[in-house]
């Protein structure tokens, strides 16, 4: 077991426990809506945690994939006469395809070059969404119909809480399984030394591509869920700031920690809601908190705190 991580069962158990307890403690529709947003963001963050934390590849444009998922879900019913669910599936497929196509040349890049290339990709997606007004509705955003399943409307904060909550647990389960597999080990290996990984037979380019596509699928799924739940999307889902928020969730929670990605998502989703009471000071406080967290809990919340507990016990 790696330092700062917990066993698969402990992590899934914790998640399930939180999932079950939140509606008991905070049953108001407002709180359930915020919690739903946490689960959605956590899904996207989990994919990014695999990409950044496990494989060590940065993406500063991941909201682009989230945007593709969200907008496909919104546009399918409007322009193609599809139902929202199949539109979402199509969106996830589109995101995976884009990741597959641009992944190889992009992932040849290292460090800051990779950062700027992914940044550019995200910004281009965002720009297309903002600019193609007749198709996307432009900056004003676009409305979605209700989802119908078996002839019944899928609606209400409680139901969406459970749908997205189940989604995040599944997403975490898959991610944990991947970590503990040949592919997962290869990804962690190339994070440390691409050269050493390649000479033991790891096809580095292929593995980076695989994890990039997985991360894109997670983000597109999160985007689709967001569109269905919110029934309204604006280009902000694909924006640069959203990309940065996603990376911050992963880093603040603790790079390479599955639980960390969820904790980071919770923090960065709840915090802005809580900060609205500061009105004018909202942004300043958010920026300050990000800097403080990164300076004082550099390993991230989950590994940082776990490390502290372990040290205290052995002291």
């Amino acid at each position: 077991m790696r330092p700062g991580t917990f066993s698969k069962l402990a992590i899934l158990g914790t998640l399930l426990l939180v999932l079950a307890v939140v509606p008991l403690v905070l049953p108001s529709p407002f709180h359930l809506r915020v919690a739903t947003l946490v689960w959605i963001n956590a899904t996207a963050a989990l994919g990014l945690a695999l990409l950044i934390g496990l494989a060590g590849q940065v993406s500063l444009g991941h909201a682009g994939f989230m945007g593709i998922g969200a907008y496909a879900t919104a546009l399918g019913p409007k322009h193609l006469g599809l139902d929202p669910l199949s539109s979402m599936a199509l969106g996830i497929f589109a995101a995976a395809l884009l990741a597959l196509l641009v992944g190889r040349p992009i992932l040849r890049l290292k460090g800051h070059y990779l950062a700027v290339a992914t940044l550019g990709l995200g910004i281009l997606v965002h720009l297309v969404i903002v600019s193609e007004v007749p198709v996307t509705g432009g900056p004003d955003g676009i409305q979605l119909p209700h989802v119908e399943l078996l002839g019944r409307r899928v609606t209400g904060p409680e139901l969406w809480y459970w749908i997205t909550g189940t989604g995040v647990v599944l997403a975490a389960w898959l991610a944990l399984n991947l970590e503990d597999s040949s592919t997962g080990r290869a990804l962690r290996a190339l994070h440390d030394s691409e050269i050493a990984a390649s000479v033991v037979g790891v096809d580095v380019a292929r593995h980076k591509l695989v994890v990039f596509v997985i991360a894109a699928v997670y983000a597109a799924l999160a985007g689709g869920l967001f569109a269905l739940f919110n029934r309204f999307v604006t280009p902000d889902v694909a924006g640069f700031l959203r990309s940065i928020e996603l990376v911050t969730m992963v880093v603040i929670g603790g790079m390479g920690s599955i639980l960390g990605a969820v904790v980071g998502a919770a923090l960065l989703t709840v915090l802005p809601q809580a900060l609205t009471v500061f009105h004018e000071y909202e942004h300043a406080v958010l920026g300050l908190l990000i800097v403080l967290f990164m300076v004082f809990l550099r390993q991230g919340i989950v590994p940082g705190l776990a490390g502290r507990v372990v040290r205290r016990r052995s002291a």
Binding site: G111, H283, G287
Partner: peptide
């Protein structure tokens, strides 16, 4: 690298937030 990127982005949000005030 990623952590430092986040630090500077956090700082930029902070500076922008202060400028707005």
């Amino acid at each position: 690298v990623v952590t430092l990127i986040i630090v500077t982005i956090g700082a930029s949000i902070l500076i922008r937030g202060l400028a707005q005030i």
